[in-house]
Structure formats: structure tokens, C-alpha cells
């Protein structure tokens, strides 16, 4: 214990407490300093553990195919067998090219689908008549797995970008719509009444009250939609594409390069992780109040 700390704690020793304003300020300063340090330490610790987790996973993956009897290293390549291929694909720019064309499709479809989902969700959530009119149809369409539309999309739109973007638009629309709808339907009436008594028009209430009040639900829908977008993306690329990570995987299958398949899978995992992290990070920035009620 340093002398300073003994100074701070001496009140516990009994007798009268000689807590001067000067000492109070020192204690406060020390407290803030400690708080900052412990927060920093926590951040560093989390990052270290994150990295350790990845390393642990790689070690397990490296060891498992060698110790488990009957595993062919060609069929289940360990990281050491994949890293070379990974490097080749990165160096040649092939991986980036595939990732880029996948990403473009996913983003285009996601933006189109979720915009439509939010719009339709707002309307069906607020207007009883539209809700009743569209309910059976939308819910029936929603229950068809989007992947089932892949062949149809190819028949209709061929093998270019259109069928892929159309499929992702279709698939991302539903989770965003359903979540927006629920959020809008359950907006506390008291918000709407407040806004009306403060002089807001119906359009103003919709955009300035209903939309932000439903935002936590909409965001949940958008997050779900990112996952859906990847699923459909790969399904669409597996069957009819000449670029993209899904194509890379299916091409590797044809030439029997399991290591290349693994590279494709890893790239998909990394992209998905990145998308989700970006999502979470931007949330705190854009909506500081979001989730604060629950904190």
C-alpha cells in the first residue's frame, strides 16, 4: 500500500475523520483514474480473450484431423493445409474479387428488400384496412423458404446479377416487414396521443414518432435480414454464377479442391462477422438511447 492510499483509507482506523476538501478532490481524482484504468484493462482483456479464442479454435482444428483415426487430410485439411491456398487466392486478388461481387449483390438486395420491408411494415402496422387486406397473402408468401425460388429466379431472370439481387431483395423483405409491423403495431398509444396534442399531423406522427418508436424492432429485423441475405446469396451463387464466394465453393467442388472450399467458407464467416460487428458498432453511435431503457 502506497502512502497515498494509506492517506485515503486512514478514516477507517477510527477517531475523527479529517476529510478536507483537498483530500476529497484527491480521492475523486484517484477514483476517476482507477475507473478509467479498469475500463481500459477490461477492453484489452476482452480483445486478448477474443484472439485467444480464435487461436484455440485453430489449434483444435489443426490437431483434430491428425488425431482422429480415419480422417483423410485431403478431405479435412487443417489450417496449415489451407493457409497456403488462402495466401495464393489473396495474392492473386481472386478472393477479393469473389468477395466483392458477393458483397455487392448482398448489399444491393439488402437495401432494396429492407427499404420495402420498412415501408410496407409502417403501412400495414398503422392502417388496419391494409393490414387485413395483406395479412393472409404476405404471411403465406413469407412461409415459403426463399431458397425455393432460386430455380424460378433463374428461369425468369437468367444467370446475371438480376436473379441474385431479386432473390436477396425477396428474402430480406420478410424479416424486416414482420419486425417493423410488430414494432409499429405496438407503439405505445401514449406517444401517438402526446404527438397529436402537441400539434403533429398524421404524416408527422408516422415519421417522427411511430418510426423512431418502432426502431428497436426494425433494427432487430435488419439484423436478421443480414443473416438471411448471406444464406440466399450463397444459395443463388452455388447454382448459377461466374463469380462470388458461393461460386468459388461450388467451383472448388468441381475441381475437388477441399482446401479452396475451406477458404470460401472462411471468407463467408469473416464477412458475416464483419457485417454484424459493424452493425452493432454503428447502433451505439447512431442511437445512443437505443437499449438504454433496459440498461
Amino acid at each position: 500500500m502506497t502512502e497515498m492510499e494509506r492517506d485515503f483509507r486512514s478514516a477507517h482506523a477510527g477517531g475523527r475523520d479529517d476529510l478536507t476538501p483537498d483530500l476529497v478532490q484527491k480521492i475523486e481524482e484517484r477514483f476517476r483514474y482507477d475507473l478509467q484504468r479498469s475500463r481500459h484493462r477490461r477492453r484489452v482483456q476482452r480483445l486478448m480473450l477474443n484472439i485467444a479464442g480464435v487461436i484455440l479454435f485453430l489449434i483444435l482444428w489443426e490437431v483434430a484431423p491428425r488425431v482422429v483415426p480415419g480422417v483423410n487430410l485431403q478431405m479435412f485439411p487443417p489450417p496449415s493445409g489451407v493457409v497456403g491456398t488462402l495466401w495464393d487466392l489473396i495474392a492473386s486478388g481472386e478472393l477479393a474479387g469473389h468477395a466483392w461481387s458477393s458483397l455487392k449483390r448482398a448489399v444491393a438486395g439488402f437495401v432494396l428488400g429492407s427499404t420495402a420491408g420498412i415501408l410496407v411494415g409502417l403501412l400495414t402496422g398503422r392502417l388496419m384496412m391494409l393490414r387485413d387486406l395483406s395479412d393472409p397473402v404476405l404471411h403465406s408468401l413469407r412461409s415459403i423458404p426463399s431458397i425455393a425460388f432460386v430455380p424460378l429466379a433463374i428461369v425468369w431472370f437468367g444467370l446475371g446479377e438480376t436473379p441474385k439481387i431479386a432473390l436477396i431483395t425477396w428474402g430480406t423483405f420478410f424479416p424486416v416487414w414482420v419486425n417493423t409491423f410488430i414494432g409499429v403495431r405496438d407503439v405505445p398509444n401514449i406517444y401517438v396521443r402526446s404527438a397529436a396534442s402537441l400539434g403533429a399531423s398524421p404524416a408527422g406522427i408516422m415519421l417522427q414518432v411511430v418510426l423512431p418508436a418502432a426502431l428497436p424492432f426494425i433494427i432487430a429485423g435488419l439484423r436478421q435480414a443480414t443473416a438471411v441475405a448471406f444464406v440466399i446469396l450463397v444459395a443463388a451463387e452455388l447454382v448459377g454464377a461466374s463469380s462470388g464466394l458461393g461460386y468459388l465453393i461450388s467451383f472448388s467442388h468441381l475441381v475437388f479442391r477441399v482446401d479452396m472450399m475451406f477458404v470460401g467458407l472462411m471468407a463467408l464467416g469473416a464477412l458475416g462477422f464483419l457485417a454484424d460487428t459493424l452493425f452493432a458498432a454503428s447502433l451505439d453511435r447512431i442511437f445512443p438511447w437505443y437499449g438504454a431503457e433496459a440498461r
Binding site: 402526446s194 404527438a195 417522427q208
Partner: peptide
Amino acid sequence: VVFQEYALFPWLTAQRNVEFGLKM
């Protein structure tokens, strides 16, 4: 109107809550 459950908009700061009606 002032409600029992406050009914402030959680996505707006105090200032913007107060400004809401005027903005509308």
C-alpha cells in the same frame, strides 16, 4: 396534456422533446 407515465420520446433529448411540438 401531461400523462402519468411521462410519455417523453426516449429517442429525443430533453431539449428536442420540448421542441417537438413547435417543430411539428
